[in-house]
Amino acid sequence: MRKQMVTAVIAAVLITSLGAEENKAEIQKGIKMPYMAFPMKQGKGMYSTKGKCNMCHSWGYVLNQGPQSKAFWRKKVIKMIDVFQAPIKNEDIDEVVEYLYKNYGNGKEN
């Protein structure tokens, strides 16, 4: 019993001192970012879309735009190319837009 208590006290002291050093240590080491999986809906064009979008950002950034129209997704894809230099060739735009609309669409063309 007594031994257990002593151990607990030592552990508590260790934890406290770790806490005080924590901020400094973290700044010295920097941080490690976790990876989070945002599963994509299975469908035609999934792998092609994944490769193109995930070059720069997570799939979460896409699916958390909410369900959108075909025109919206087309505009977004073109913005990614024009503003953010996404490596999507002109001939591949339709495939990406179709995949997005089919799987993350709101049923409206416009």
């Binding site: 970012m33 976790p34 990876y35 989070m36 950002h57 997570s58 979460g60 950034y61 958390n64």
Partner: peptide
């Protein structure tokens, strides 16, 4: 999953973190 220096939060994206 908790992000560095954070408790678990509602997570929309990990890259960039949202």
């Amino acid at each position: 999953i908790a992000f560095p220096q954070k408790r678990p939060l509602i997570t929309y994206s990990d890259r960039p973190p949202l």
